[in-house]
Design a protein around this nucleic acid. Structure first.
Lengths: 206, 206, 206, 206
DNA sequence: AGTTAACCGAGACGGTACGTCCTGTCTTATA
DNA sequence: TATAAGACAGGACGTACCGTCTCGGTTAACT
């Protein structure tokens, strides 16, 4: 029996990286449906145990893979024009969530999260809360700059801004397009904008 | 719900009812995880084909089961006080979505919907759009009654009201409680309420 | 009370014929595997009950279908040369059993017969015994004509002649070709032929 | 937290053995009809895949099970009396084929073989050919010993000996009893026995 | 000619088995 | 000791037939 030399086995962190990458590749190629641990291990030419050793749950793996792909710049710009900055950031996020590999992985995570409260908490902690926080910081800066009314606590407003867009993306056949974002910002600015700068009687609604 | 004219298959209809009920029972007893077609058929003492004959997909079955459980009164009250009516309706919806059997079934549907665009569209068409529409009608009435500004198109606002709450319920560890609803309504009324009636300078924010 | 009332109902008889023909057609087109009652009824555009009303068992249906196709001339020729007559008849039977539709139906019947002793008995009664009997008659005639030894009971010999060929056809990858038939006849004639006419020292064996 | 230690999983060859044994047990207990892969796996407390991993086909599994049960001594005795030796061996084979577990498994294999030419070939290769060969060897020895005529090739004769008995067993309601075996041997000896030793004018035929 | 009972297609129904896929645990052999 | 490979029990998937059972709508025979 001829012993063919097998390739050197990569280990530890390198392996972890490779697995996450394979997960993203699979997501991009075969989508949500192909994201089984079995398929990932097969594609990575890795024993299944090597996956389970690293992540206790498919949700955990997918969350890490999502993080790896989460290269989008989360920090809102601060050009001094709050509306324009939010608009630009929301557009960027929207297209990021739509395209592979983030899109399929995100959907997979959300599906997992429905049956796993821990995954749901982690999903929020590591991704959604981050988005909310980043938005909150930007609007808070705007508030300090006088763009927004000073008499309101914006915490919940930041959640609404994010939530409305996620809702549309995940549970609606409608796209998160410019019209949607503008409509949302109209509402936000109407509610919290400083009186003098906010009124745009010709453009509210949509 | 649109049905074919009138093929009075009483035999079939009885089975269909029973299957939907079993689905809800399973959801209440064993939760999301127990909602396999196999388990439903087994519990109903029915051949699997009897299920597949009626619903091409688990998502389709779950959507019908959801509809069956969806007894919540969707029509917003109209006491003349928009804020109070919305608040009351949102609280009611929230508790309906939290408890079995709607809770588990809803989550299961959403999980299915992530991998099945058709299910996603149907989910929205039959449930979320209904909620949006119902809300839109109430706020439009309020607008005509002078409670809300007359210069805005409220279509998107209605989506935001619903979406923000669904987001919190489905993707967040936070509960949809009175504080959340009040915060949302503050924002909404601040944005669109008629000037004289809306300002509640002491309570905005959360 | 099975009171055979009057002349046969034409409608019924026509249907029966059609079903048998469909069975043969299916056997010829899709072979053994396609011979389910379900498929036959579907192809005949007939309710399954119409099949079960006529035949209690798939085996029963197949046996009737087999009979319908069993057009092969079973009566051995009697040219005065026993060996030649048997040879000719065996060749004819062999090719009949090999080709559709008899081939597939025959195999299907035999498969059914393995799990159903009644079907096995009927199979033998209606087909195999007929072949044995027909052969027995021919060799008995030859015996009376002096072609075969007078001091033997040929009943079992007739069974062996048939059985050896069926064995080869059904359980062996070898074809029932001229060589096989000649070999068999050599053995038979060597055993039972009258001394003077039988010895063919140059041709015995294969 | 130490869970209850599950019994060490039997693997590989041991598992294969167990599965074959379960197949034979089922055959003996519930007969031909109970020999589904599903039932075998259930009885063995084994995942179905564990069966499919080993045998691509039910036929393949049954063939192996048959082999396991095939303990009958295939080698013909050689007491110097060919007729007695063959008789003894045929009787032994006959009763082996009649009783469980070989009986039901054999019938199941033959049923499978009718719809699967590969199974048919394997069935012959591994069982029937073996019987033919063993018989051929014995008669060839007898031929060299002068018991049989020297001027014949016995290959086909060996097939006929086996085939006639299989035919009777599998396709006939008649049993393979002593009379049948004697009749067959009469014919064989009449055909191929050396003249001086063979003639038994009082006993030929059945 | 009207009645009526058998027959019909269509297919629903509870079952069982098929063969495939994935899960999460466990084992083996290699490096 | 970590690994690649994959065996393993379990269970769901969606499909195919089985043989029984309605369901209305013909037919054909006998009033």
């Amino acid at each position: 029996m001829p012993n063919e030399p097998s390739p050197p086995r990569r280990r530890g962190a390198v392996r972890t990286e490779a697995l996450l990458q394979v997960t993203l590749d699979l997501a991009a190629e075969v989508g949500y449906a192909g994201l089984s641990i079995e398929a990932i291990a097969r594609r990575a030419e890795v024993g299944k145990h090597t996956v389970y050793r690293r992540w206790p749950t498919k949700a955990a793996l997918l969350l890490d893979a999502l993080q790896r792909a989460w290269a989008t710049d989360l920090d809102h710009r601060d050009t001094g024009d709050l509306r324009a900055d939010l608009r630009e950031q929301f557009l960027r996020s929207s297209s990021a969530l739509t395209e592979p590999p983030i899109g399929p992985v995100y959907r997979a995570v959300i599906a997992e999260a429905q049956s796993d409260p821990a995954a749901r908490a982690t999903l929020h902690e590591r991704f959604l809360r981050t988005v909310e926080t980043s938005t909150l910081e930007r609007v808070t800066r705007a508030q300090r700059a006088g763009e927004l009314r000073a008499d309101v606590d914006l915490t919940f407003a930041a959640e609404v801004l994010c939530g409305a867009l996620y809702y549309r993306h995940l549970l609606t056949p409608r796209p998160v397009d410019e019209a949607a974002i503008d409509g949302l910002l109209d509402m936000f600015m109407a509610a919290y904008g400083s009186r003098s700068r906010t009124r745009r009687p010709d453009a509210v609604g949509g």
